[in-house]
Design a protein around this nucleic acid. Structure first.
Ligand SMILES: [Mg+2]
Length: 352
DNA sequence: ATCCTCCCCTAC
DNA sequence: TAAGGTAGGGGAGGAT
């Protein structure tokens, strides 16, 4: 429900504003505590992480988890939930079941029972499209999914997704906790408040978006070879969206260019962004969203040929918090010529 | 046989 | 699918 509608129904509604600084502070405390208990921590977001506790099995995992949750609450005043199991898939599912403010250990013996009635949609990586497709075949729970052959799944979902479905519905997950994650792409997009009257408005927007992406790349010390422009346009027949300045029902198109050398250069980005936009042949009056993304990344200071991949620690570190704030302030200048500003960098505030 | 581009799906 | 932004990954089909 939109705030506007909620206020219509509840005129005295108190709307609490975002407080990104506080979320960042809690995230720092959260990760600080996790690292006190475990060296293998993989950050999924500002409020969710995997911990590989294999090396800590000399202690009782459930007791360790109790202590961590207590410390998180004591320090942050935010409750936290946790799942404990033999692999990442089951631990993640256990966490969902444990909410709010609880913890759950799924032992090996309980896995089959737990999964048999679990909706397929609850599996990570399975969303509306895949689960609806299975539902249309009367397959709704993991127990039912186990009766579908690998071959049949492969025909309907392709290699990777069929394997994932086959393994996950049996509680199988061989993936490992990776503390260090490689950034694959850096980009920025705006899909709200975008309305252009003239070509030069769109052009101006592309220039600013290019600047934003260039600055973000430089902020990360990264350069890239592939630039992708994504444009949302009003779908034929779709009227103005009910939500003010929203993008409404749109079609999405994209074009990309791969260069021989990696760059973070503003002028290069602007030139290519313009070329890509022109190649899409859209009526600027119909544009509802624009995004620009750089991929095939390399470390800026290592130059070409250094295929090491970039090792970026979680963006939750305090230095990257500062960068994040700068980005969000810059983003305010991405508003179009009507002065409509954009709101980026949403951040979940619940910790359970 | 593998890579690339574009599109779609998913999670937070 | 009545949030929007960032990012990762996979599928289809064409290109190499
Ligand atoms: Mg799911």
């Amino acid at each position: 429900m939109f705030v506007r509608d909620a206020k219509a129904r509840c005129p005295h509604l108190t709307v609490v504003p975002y407080n990104f600084d506080a979320y960042g502070e809690v995230a720092d405390q959260f990760y600080g505590i996790l690292h006190k208990y475990c060296t293998k921590v993989q950050a999924l977001s500002c409020d969710e992480a995997f911990l590989d506790m294999t090396e800590c099995l000399h202690d009782n995992p459930e007791e360790v988890t109790e202590r961590m949750r207590n410390e998180i609450f004591g320090t942050t005043k935010c409750t936290a939930s946790a799942g404990i199991a033999e692999n990442r898939l089951l631990a993640r599912l256990a966490t969902r079941s444990a909410k709010p403010n609880g913890q759950l250990f799924i032992s090996s013996e309980k896995v089959d029972d737990y999964l048999s009635t679990l909706p397929i949609k609850a599996l990570p990586g399975i969303g509306y499209t895949v689960s609806d497709k299975l539902k249309s075949k009367e397959v709704e729970h993991c127990g039912q999914l186990r009766n579908i052959s690998k071959d049949a799944l492969h025909k309907d979902f392709g290699k990777k997704i069929s394997n994932m479905l086959w393994n996950y519905c049996r509680g199988i997950d061989h993936s490992v906790v990776e503390a260090v994650q490689e950034t694959k792409s850096v980009g920025a997009e705006v899909n709200w408040g975008v309305r252009f009257n003239e070509n030069k408005d769109a052009d101006n927007f592309l220039v600013n978006l290019s600047r934003e992406v260039s600055l973000r790349l430089q902020g990360c010390g990264l350069q890239g070879r592939t630039i992708t422009l994504k444009v949302k346009t009003r779908r034929k027949g779709a009227g103005e969206p009910l939500k003010f300045m929203g993008c409404g029902d749109c079609e999405t198109m994209s074009r990309s260019t791969t260069m021989t050398g990696a760059t973070d250069n503003l002028v290069t980005l602007q030139r290519i962004a313009r070329q890509l936009f022109a190649a899409l042949h859209v009526d600027v009056k119909e544009v509802r969203g624009v995004g620009l993304k750089m991929s095939k990344l390399e470390h800026a200071d290592l130059g070409r040929g250094a295929q090491q991949g970039n090792m970026l620690k979680s963006w939750l570190g305090s230095s990257s918090e500062k960068l994040k704030k700068q980005c969000s302030e810059r983003t305010c200048f991405l508003g179009n010529s009507d002065g409509i500003l954009t709101c980026q960098r949403s951040c979940r505030s619940h910790y359970q």
